Simulated scan of single mutants.
Amino acid sequence: MPQFHWINEPAIWRNENDQLTVVTDGQTDFWRETWYGFTRFSGHFWGCEVQEDFTFQARIRADFHTLYDQAGIMFMVDEQHWLKAGIEYNDGQAAIGSVLTQGGSDWATGSFNGDARDFWMRLTLRDDCLRLQYSADGLIWPLLRLCRIVKTRRYQVGVMCCTPERAGLNVNFSEISLTPPNGKALHDLS
């Protein structure tokens, strides 16, 4: 496993027994301009550098209950080009969603049919395209998003969490893996 590092290291975290536990700082987020007019790059991101195509996967556990509580995975080119995805609490419930930022952010969200306190995320980069999947059980992996990303020689991929409206979301990341791209067909749900 490559060396992981923090962007916006939280005050409270530990990495032991192949599990990363984080307690979010207050008013943390990743967002650029759209709708709200502000830019934030204060969320917690624990990632590593990648230079080749890959599949990255993680299991995420947290108790989301305050507006915009969020945790999941993230792919980053730079502060203006990135993708974050996972569970985010909005409209009175935990929802699955993703934010693709290419200058400005977009946000796509939907219902999560599982226990949002325990879920998996998977991201595959192949030929400058990102295939984003999620799972409620670690076995079945529906497609959440397919998109192109800015081509460059180096990227960062890892896990993220944010709490724009508060501090104190306790998040556990486990089963973190970074492998060559899994080579599965687009609609292969395994």
Rank of each mutant, 00 (worst) to 15 (best):
P2E: 13
Q3C: 05
H5G: 08
W6Y: 13
I7K: 08
I7D: 11
I7T: 14
I7C: 03
E9I: 08
P10F: 07
W13L: 07
R14H: 12
N15S: 10
N15H: 14
E16P: 04
D18L: 12
Q19F: 02
L20Q: 10
T21H: 07
V22Y: 03
V22G: 03
T24G: 07
D29T: 00
D29F: 01
W31G: 00
R32P: 00
T34I: 03
W35S: 12
T39F: 02
T39Y: 01
T39V: 14
F41H: 12
H44R: 07
H44A: 07
G47E: 04
G47F: 15
E49N: 08
E49I: 09
V50R: 03
V50W: 02
Q51I: 12
D53L: 08
F56R: 03
F56K: 03
Q57M: 01
A58Y: 05
R59N: 07
I60V: 14
R61S: 14
A62S: 10
A62G: 09
D63G: 05
D63I: 06
F64C: 08
T66H: 10
T66G: 01
T66E: 07
L67A: 13
L67I: 15
D69H: 15
Q70I: 09
G72Y: 00
G72M: 02
I73A: 04
M74H: 03
M74F: 04
M76P: 01
M76Q: 11
V77M: 00
D78T: 05
E79D: 07
E79S: 09
E79T: 12
E79C: 06
Q80I: 10
Q80D: 15
I87N: 04
N90T: 15
G92Y: 13
A95R: 13
A95G: 11
I96C: 11
I96V: 13
G97K: 10
V99S: 07
L100D: 00
Q102K: 01
Q102R: 10
G103Q: 06
G104P: 11
G104N: 15
S105D: 04
S105W: 10
D106S: 13
D106W: 08
W107K: 09
W107Y: 08
A108V: 12
T109K: 10
F112R: 11
F112Y: 12
A116M: 05
R117T: 15
W120A: 11
W120P: 04
R126S: 00
R126E: 04
D127N: 13
D127Q: 05
D127E: 10
C129H: 06
R131E: 05
Y134E: 11
A136P: 13
D137K: 02
G138P: 09
G138F: 06
G138H: 07
L143I: 07
R145E: 09
R145C: 02
L146S: 04
I149S: 12
I149Q: 13
V150H: 09
K151E: 07
Q156V: 03
V157E: 05
V157M: 05
V157D: 03
G158T: 10
G158Y: 13
V159H: 04
V159W: 00
M160I: 08
C161R: 04
C161I: 09
C161V: 10
E165P: 11
E165W: 12
A167Y: 09
L169N: 01
N170H: 15
V171L: 05
V171D: 13
V171T: 13
S174F: 08
L178T: 12
T179D: 11
P180S: 13
P180F: 03
N182R: 01
G183Y: 00
H187W: 08
H187N: 06
D188N: 02
D188R: 02
L189D: 02
